[in-house]
């Protein structure tokens, strides 16, 4: 029973930790499937988290915080689009630029506006997305095994957690069952064909970049308003890059993306859990080893040793209509 409780708690924190990864990973999916590489997930998430923390603190409304996060993240996405779609700039350079702009601006503005060393003031409960008790969670608690699982693992998360997992089938449906999705995937593989069919490559890619911005904004809002209570300097701490790794790990597919994010979230949860708990036979595993594992796994995957990750064919290549 004791180890069962531990396991459920471990899975519970896995879910909490993988939600920002999942949002960002799906965000990258829209963008990269349309042929726009996006290194800037990290920056958009960070700027979104800052906007969420600031707007939610000033207005006291959780929803306005969320909207502000989405707005700011979409604006940064549009900058990326302007550089890489309209001006056919290098998409990676543009993404790197956005990460730096977000990292610097959030600290400078946060310090100037709130004077708490780059943090935003701590949010009251009403400005956050609190835990949602699913119906029957309390009543079920005493049912052996299943009850605990339901009340701890399934119930009691913020609404954004459920939204993140709902986004997985939704994204699959958009990409594989709608006209927009078909065109989005086509423009990432062969933009010339899409252009020949009379569809604007630029406008399609802009819409993909906007979708990416919305989801990154949600990831940021989750960090500042659900997982934490306000923005903290550099609170994304490389999650955008882990999401990028998860996206490659998932071979640019939505359902795989969910499993990849859960895996990386699980590694993170395990690393936190194992601090000071030596394993049998192996002994103390250094926390740094667990932290590095997602990156090592991604490199091994990229090397083609466990399956081959093939990116969208037109990814990273600006589309030139005619010469």
């Amino acid at each position: 029973m004791d180890s069962y409780v531990t396991l459920v708690q471990l899975l519970d924190s896995t879910i909490r930790l993988s939600v920002p990864l999942l949002f960002a990973c799906l965000a990258g999916l829209y963008s990269e499937r349309s042929g726009i590489f996006d290194i800037g997930l990290e920056g958009k998430m960070l700027a979104g988290a800052f906007a969420a923390g600031t707007a939610a603190y000033i207005t006291g409304s959780a929803v306005i915080g969320l909207l502000a996060a989405v707005l700011v993240s979409v604006l940064l996405g549009l900058v990326h689009g302007f550089a890489s779609i309209t001006h056919r700039g290098n998409q990676i350079v543009s993404g790197v630029a956005i990460n730096f702009i977000a990292a610097g601006t959030t600290v400078i503005l946060g310090q100037a506006w709130f004077r708490q060393g780059g943090r935003t003031p701590s949010l009251p409960g009403s400005a956050r997305f609190g835990a949602l008790q699913l119906p029957g969670a309390e009543a079920m608690r005493d049912v052996p095994v299943v009850g605990y699982l339901y009340s701890e693992l399934i119930s009691g998360h913020s609404v954004l957690v459920y939204l993140a997992f709902l986004m997985v089938p939704f994204t699959w449906w958009v990409l594989h069952r709608t006209r927009f999705g078909l065109r989005l995937r086509a423009v990432g593989e062969n933009p010339a064909a899409v252009d020949t069919a009379g569809i604007s490559v630029a406008w399609l890619r802009y819409r993909a970049v906007i979708c990416c911005g919305v989801l990154c904004g949600l990831a940021g809002a989750y960090l500042a308003q659900a997982q934490g209570a306000g923005f903290v300097k550099d609170m994304t701490a490389g999650k955008g890059y882990i999401a990028l790794a998860a996206l490659i790990f998932a071979k640019w597919r939505p359902v795989n993306a969910m499993f990849a994010c859960l895996l990386f979230g699980f590694l993170d949860a395990l690393a936190i859990r194992m601090q000071g708990h030596p394993l049998p036979l192996i002994g103390q595993v250094p926390a740094q080893f667990m932290q590095a594992l997602p990156y090592v796994l991604t490199v091994i995957l990229l090397a083609g040793f466990i399956g081959k990750a093939i990116p969208p064919r037109a990814g990273g290549v600006p589309y030139v209509k005619e010469r």
């Binding site: 900058v79 302007f82 550089a83 890489s84 001006h87 700039g89 290098n90 998409q91 350079v93 543009s94 790197v96 630029a97 956005i98 990460n99 730096f100 702009i101 977000a102 990292a103 610097g104």
Partner: peptide, 10 residues
């Protein structure tokens, strides 16, 4: 970041 944006991507 701005230098990378304007001298690089743009």
């Amino acid at each position: 970041g701005l230098v990378i944006l304007f001298a690089g991507a743009l």
